[in-house]
Design a protein around this nucleic acid. Structure first.
Length: 422
RNA sequence: GGAGAGGUGGCAGAGUGGUCGAACGCGCCAGACUCGAAAUCUGGUUUAGCCGCAAGGUUAACGAGGGUUCGAAUCCCUCCCUCUCCGCCA
């Protein structure tokens, strides 16, 4: 959510930002609603002031004054009810519109509408030369590691079983990421896999409605989380954090559930786009002054983890139109995957890190008491440490040998206890 | 799942219709005393919105939402959460 005051004072800038973000918002229409809302607010408040005044007089009123005051109070009550109804309607609409505003955009983010306008910053590592590279599905079949058919039988399409050494490897990857982050000062967290709608909305997700990617539980206000960003963001909801406590760094493990409505074809090949996966997510609360440096730190951790997994990747600076609602700036890591690019291989998204500035904190009401004793909205940042499914694709495909065996990256061996598959 | 108790300021805890944004205490901040500290004393100490250059004014919040009333922390209803006991269970 943006600061209403900021929108009032920077209407042109905010409109331009919405345009660059590819979000259809008419700022001038909102400003009109805002004006109307404030006028009604003042009406309602002055009626309340009068009501309070009359009620106050009652305390010491004489017996003959009382009936008159009661009459006055009654008519004020009626006027107030009407005023509050009018205000409530305008206010709800005003709030709804306000929630639709995307965050502001970092001045250095590329301007553009689609992912074609994203900027490649660098490529790290080298793609292994292979005569006959196999994709993860072929590797899975060869070693009996992935069972999509029975996943579909049990839970439907885009669900899967991981078997044998791959099931062990998945846990090893989680352990590896957690222990790496613990050394970097993150507090490990195992979070709920469900969260309340207001927490979802607070972190910038839409729990219900036609366009949602979220599974919601019928007859409840709960949804299955799409990422631990949701639960970790909700963790300090409605809190005031002492300045001495930040940056607060969490590494949350959870299952992630996504409906992936309307996605088919090669973009969802194999494990690339599935309804459920495990993930270790980084989440940081910090001051506005700290957030840019923290963002780069999160990116560094993501890169370190993928380097340790011996996976070539490229770093992408996401353009304005592709940022989504909450992000002020976003970097993605795309790993090499042999199953993409029609069998020639290509880049596939494996991580994403966002600086959400105060966009989520404003909705979640998370503040920091700074050294002057003032409360300021926190900045929140998130980043994927390791997202299983996609990281599994990358590990299997990039660490395969010409004979179809898979060499386990050295960093994982202590966690899984074997060095090779096949 | 059954029975009961309860949710009030940073903590603890009073308050059962108007004198309550809220006692007393603890904590915290500032000052006095002191060479300094402790103790003691004095004052201050929730948050957010709106109006205002400011001083200041005003509204709202006692778990959440609704209702009764001229007036609600206080009465009524619904929901949420916590605790105790019983049952069940990984």
């Amino acid at each position: 959510m943006l600061d209403p005051k900021y929108i009032r004072e920077h209407a042109t800038e905010v409109q331009t930002n919405c345009d660059h973000r590819n979000v259809k918002i008419d700022v001038s229409a909102w400003l009109k609603a805002d004006e109307r809302r404030l006028a009604l607010l003042q009406t309602v408040e002055s009626l309340r002031a009068k009501r309070n005044e009359v009620a106050d007089k009652m305390k010491s009123a004489s017996a003959e004054d009382r009936p008159g005051l009661i009459e006055q109070g009654k008519s004020l009550k009626d006027a107030l009810a009407a005023g509050e109804a009018a205000f409530g309607e305008v206010d709800a609409d005003w709030k709804r519109q306000l929630l639709a505003f995307p965050n502001l955009t970092h001045p250095a983010s590329p301007i553009g509408m689609t992912d074609d306008d994203n900027k490649e910053l660098r490529i790290v590592g080298e793609v292994k030369k292979l005569e006959h590279p196999l994709d993860h599905i072929a590797l899975g079949q060869k070693h009996d590691l992935i069972d999509l058919e029975r996943g579909a039988k049990v839970a439907g399409a885009k669900f899967y079983f991981l078997k044998g050494k791959l099931a062990l490897l998945e846990q090893a990857m989680i352990q590896f990421a957690l222990s790496y982050l613990a050394k970097e000062g993150f507090t490990a967290m195992s979070t709920p896999d469900l969260a309340k709608d207001d927490v979802l909305v607070g972190t910038g997700f839409q729990p219900r409605g036609p366009e949602t990617q979220i599974y919601s539980i019928e007859n409840s206000d709960l949804s299955l989380i799409g990422t631990a960003e949701i639960t970790l963001g909700g963790y300090h909801k409605d809190e005031i954090l002492p300045a001495s406590a930040v940056p607060l760094k969490y590494a949350g493990v959870s299952h992630c559930y996504r409906t992936e409505a309307g996605t088919y074809g090669k973009e969802s090949y194999g494990l690339y786009r599935v309804h459920q996966f495990s993930k270790v997510e980084m989440f940081v609360y910090c001051t506005p002054e700290q957030s840019e440096a923290v963002h780069l730190e999160l990116l560094r951790h993501e890169e370190n983890i993928f380097k340790a997994l011996e996976i070539p990747f490229r770093v992408i600076d996401i353009c304005s139109g592709d940022l989504g609602g909450p992000a002020y700036r976003k970097y993605d890591l795309e790993a090499w995957m042999w199953g993409r690019g029609e069998g020639k291989g290509g880049w596939g998204e494996v991580t994403s890190t966002s600086n959400c500035t105060d966009f989520q904190a404003r909705r979640l009401n998370v503040r920091i008491k700074n050294d002057n004793g003032d409360n300021v909205y926190a900045h929140t940042l998130n980043g994927t440490a390791i997202s299983l499914a996609r990281a599994i694709i990358a590990v299997l495909e990039n660490n395969q040998n010409e004979d179809g065996s898979i060499t386990i990256p050295k960093a994982l061996v202590p966690f899984c206890g074997f060095e090779k598959i096949g």
